[in-house]
């Protein structure tokens, strides 16, 4: 039975499953779900706790022994199995046996990583699914993150305008652990003890407190620039620089993309069929999600512009390697602007 992370609290009040499985790879919600399960189990009188780490060498007989051996001191116990790979090393034989013959007075908590779609068809997963409450956590971003932030802030007695919410959203970019810290920090800084009313915070108060803790993805940078959002792209570049990422990596990725676009653009204009972007893109492997973005860029540009960009990239490359004076990161900013279409294009 699937339980949504946000519904877990109420679900635990209503009923208890003999087995719980928490899976997914978003650390904050994962941790909170596991903590909540432990707390609930403790509340219901499960005092002992056995913890097992199911790595490749784990003997799954341990689970069966733990399940069947009675304890001298406590009648109810929690068994925790940490299974970060999301796949039991014995193909789930022990788990199937456990689930088919559930011991009373034991709550089993399987703490798994991401469960792959193929695994969900396996016998052990089905056996667990039949008796367990399964909590799957997903990463939260975009509009959903705003809602999520709003809920958490309200629980802390804070109320924020949409622009402040968006600020936190921008700064943490899907890093929920960081978002949680920011909320904690805001609540420590601004809430008044004992006050029951929601405390409204303005943009300045939030901006002052919130730290830029986003973790940027290198591969998003180019697409972000291409979509024309220069502001965000610049912030990403700055973030990557601060994280200590090598500029060579960024440049080589850009060079690869620009070269591909240059080729496609050349085909587009050589054929004289300026509107038939589909044809120009044929033969290049492009991730389906990116197709419309690239098509858009091709329609609004000319081959010379891509050639010009390649020259700039060459120049940045020389700067990075000391063959030419100048700061390659500054050059990269110019290139970003060019890609975003704000200056040269």
């Amino acid at each position: 039975m699937q339980i949504k992370p946000e519904q877990l609290r109420n679900d635990l009040k209503a009923r208890q499953y003999p087995v719980y499985m928490v899976c997914g790879d978003e650390p904050l919600q994962h941790r909170e779900a596991v903590d909540m399960l432990r707390k609930a189990a403790h509340f219901y009188g499960y005092e002992e706790r056995d913890v097992y780490h199911a790595d490749a060498h784990f003997d799954w007989n341990n689970l069966l022994t733990a399940a069947n051996e009675l304890s001298l001191f406590a009648s109810k116990k929690i068994i925790e199995i940490h299974m970060p790979t999301g796949k039991p090393s014995d193909k789930g034989v022990a788990l199937i046996q456990y689930c088919e013959n559930l011991p009373p007075d034991i709550i089993l908590i399987i703490i798994a990583g991401k469960i792959e779609a193929a695994t969900k068809k396996s016998k052990w997963y089905k056996a667990v699914d039949a008796v367990a409450g399964i909590v799957t956590v997903w990463s939260i971003d975009g509009q959903y993150l705003n809602q999520w932030l709003q809920r958490r802030l309200q629980a802390k007695g804070l109320s924020l305008q949409t622009d402040s919410l968006q600020l936190i959203n921008d700064r943490v970019e899907g890093n929920l652990l960081a978002a949680d810290q920011e909320i904690e920090k805001l609540s420590l800084l601004y809430t008044v003890a004992g006050s029951k009313q929601l405390l409204p915070l303005d943009y300045e108060q939030v901006a002052e407190a919130v730290f830029d803790s986003a973790r940027y993805n290198l591969f998003d940078l180019f697409d972000c620039a291409l979509s024309g959002d220069l502001k965000r792209a610049s912030r990403m570049l700055y973030g990557l620089q601060r994280e200590g990422l090598s500029i060579i990596l960024i440049m080589s990725l850009f060079a690869k993309e620009v070269r591909m676009l240059a080729k496609m653009s050349a085909i587009l204009y050589a054929g004289g069929q300026q509107d038939n972007v589909e044809v120009a893109m044929k033969g290049f492997y492009i991730f389906p999600k990116r197709k419309s973005l690239l098509a858009q860029a091709l329609r609004s540009s000319r081959p010379e512009q891509w050639q010009q960009l390649l020259k700039q990239l060459l120049q940045a490359d020389k700067m990075a390697k000391g063959a030419e004076p100048g700061d390659p990161w500054d050059m990269m900013q110019l290139i970003l602007a060019a890609v975003a279409g704000k200056t040269y294009l």
Binding site: A67, N68, E69, L70, S71, L72
Partner: peptide, 8 residues
Amino acid sequence: YVVMPMRI
């Protein structure tokens, strides 16, 4: 000596 049983 006190020994707890096992479920079998």
